[in-house]
Structures are given as C-alpha cells and as structure tokens.
Simulated assay, not measured.
Amino acid sequence: MITLTNQQIIDYQDQGYLIIPGFFTEEEAKKLYQVAIDDNTISKHAIDVNDSSGKRSKLSLWYKPGDDIYGLLTRSERMVNAVDKLMDGTTAVCHFHSKLMQKEPRVGGAWEWHQDYGYWYKNQFLFPDQMMSVMIAVSDANRLNGCLQVIKGSHKMGRVEHGFAGEQNGASLTYVELALKTMEHIYVELKAGDALFFHSNLLHRSEANLSDNARWSLISCYNREANIGYNDSASDKSSTTPIAVVPDDALLSREAKGVNEDAADFLRKEDDKSLQ
C-alpha cells in the first residue's frame, strides 16, 4: 500500500495539489483504459460541453461508486487513505461523484479557469477544506493534448466568483489574472496511472486537445461525512455516506467491467447546467 510522507502532506497543504507518479501500476492503468474505451454505458451517458470557442469536450458523471472498474479504483484503500491524510477534518471519507473526462483528438475543447468549490458552493457545502478531487490519468496527459494546468497556492485565495463562459462556469478573470501575476502557473503532465490530488479551491484549467491522441482521465471527488451539502441534489446523498473501502488488489483480482447503468445514478445535462 502506498503511504504518504509527511513532506507530501506539507506540500499539498502549501501548494494545493500533489502529484504521485505511478499511483496505479501500468497493468492497472491498461485495464482501466481498455474497459473505459469499450464501455457503452459511459458513452451513452457522455455529455458534450462546449468551451467559449465552441470546441467540445465530453464527460460522464455519476454519484454511486459500485463494483465496476471505476468504483474499485475510487474505493481502493490507497485512494481513500491518501485522501484521508490530505483532506481537512476527521469524519469518514465519502464519495461525492466521479467523472470520466474524454478529450478527443483535434476536437476536444478547453476547460476555463475554475475552482471545483466555485461550483460545489451552490450545493451548500460549507467547508471547502473538507472536499477534494483526485485525477487519475487514464491515458498520458501533456501540453499538446490539453493537460491540466494549475495555479500553485491559489487554494489559499478562498472561493472566487464564477460565471458562464460557453457552457462552462468559469472563475472571475480579474482574480485569475491577479493570481497569475502572484503565483506560479504549472502544467501538470502525467503518465497513465499517475495521480493528481487537488484542493477544491485550487484554480485549474486545460487547453483544447490539438494532438492526434485522446486524453482521458478519471476524476473522483471526495467529501467528509460531517460536511453536509444542504442543497446536494444527488438522490442517494453519497456525499455523506462513508465509502466501503476495497483492497488495492481488487482492481486486478476481480472481474470488474464498466459502469452498471441502473446503480450508478448518472448526471443528465438538463439536471445541472454547471456539469460539476
């Protein structure tokens, strides 16, 4: 089992993010990728989201982590333990939602500068320090295919006002520009299986995919049991249901396939205009 060091925890608290190369093995990453590209349920529930220029990205978002390949990853001991060490608070770690991001070659659009809590605030979660996201690279991510970008330390700014740009909810450009003058702009280039842990108030974005290679990533979002979303619309309130942790070897030892449509509780585009 991967155990975080004290220095990694300090780095996360200071910078608002932490990169762990090889968090999932090459074999695990290959299995995840193969299941994802063949998953008809994921494709069926993919939502097209236009950026401000009209380019399109796709995402599939669901609330209930099951015994499928994605749920076993989200609920794995190494994931939950790492989140527990990095996230503020002491109550149980819960699953808010997961999403498979599908940025296709040449057509995959950009994501505007934003904070996740800029969206989640409307769900009336009161404590952003008790919320975070973990991005797992399903395929390699680099500058050419539109890897994630972050502003180091921007989580310390607190929540920034957000407004719509295209079909996306973006952070106030005034504050983004001030942040870029003050803090370091980082391109997060990842290999398949690498993990990026990031605070709910960290400013981040991505460019359009101009390459011939797809960029796919799985993002699982977590919350503390005591951090109630008073306007959380998820039908099962998974955001305050402690995760049923599974052993790390479950990802390879179990015959896990794609998402179970009846159990996952997918988001529909008409249900939530912010898509987060």
Rank of each mutant, 00 (worst) to 15 (best):
2 I>P: 05
6 N>H: 08
6 N>Q: 14
9 I>L: 10
11 D>C: 07
13 Q>F: 03
16 G>V: 07
17 Y>N: 01
21 P>D: 14
23 F>P: 03
25 T>P: 13
29 A>K: 06
30 K>Y: 07
30 K>H: 13
41 T>G: 00
42 I>W: 04
44 K>G: 07
45 H>D: 13
47 I>P: 05
47 I>S: 08
53 S>H: 13
56 R>V: 15
57 S>T: 13
59 L>M: 13
61 L>S: 09
61 L>Q: 12
61 L>P: 00
63 Y>C: 11
64 K>M: 13
66 G>V: 04
70 Y>K: 01
75 R>G: 04
79 M>T: 15
80 V>D: 02
82 A>S: 15
82 A>N: 12
89 G>V: 01
96 F>W: 14
97 H>E: 11
99 K>T: 03
100 L>P: 01
102 Q>F: 12
102 Q>I: 15
103 K>C: 08
106 R>L: 15
107 V>F: 09
107 V>Q: 13
108 G>L: 06
108 G>H: 10
110 A>N: 07
110 A>R: 10
111 W>A: 10
114 H>K: 07
116 D>G: 02
122 K>P: 00
125 F>A: 08
127 F>P: 00
128 P>G: 08
129 D>P: 00
129 D>H: 10
131 M>E: 09
134 V>I: 14
137 A>Q: 03
138 V>M: 12
139 S>P: 06
143 R>Y: 03
143 R>V: 15
145 N>Y: 12
150 V>S: 05
154 S>W: 11
156 K>F: 04
157 M>T: 00
158 G>H: 07
158 G>V: 08
162 H>C: 04
168 Q>G: 01
169 N>P: 00
174 T>N: 14
176 V>N: 06
177 E>I: 02
183 M>P: 00
184 E>T: 15
185 H>A: 12
186 I>V: 14
188 V>H: 03
188 V>G: 01
195 A>W: 06
196 L>D: 02
197 F>K: 02
199 H>R: 05
202 L>K: 05
205 R>P: 00
206 S>G: 02
216 W>C: 01
218 L>D: 00
218 L>N: 06
224 R>F: 10
224 R>K: 14
227 N>R: 07
229 G>L: 11
229 G>N: 11
229 G>C: 10
230 Y>K: 14
232 D>C: 13
234 A>I: 05
234 A>P: 01
242 P>R: 09
248 D>C: 12
248 D>A: 06
248 D>Q: 09
250 A>E: 06
252 L>P: 04
252 L>D: 04
253 S>C: 12
255 E>P: 04
255 E>I: 00
257 K>E: 15
264 A>Y: 02
270 E>C: 09
273 K>N: 06
276 Q>F: 14
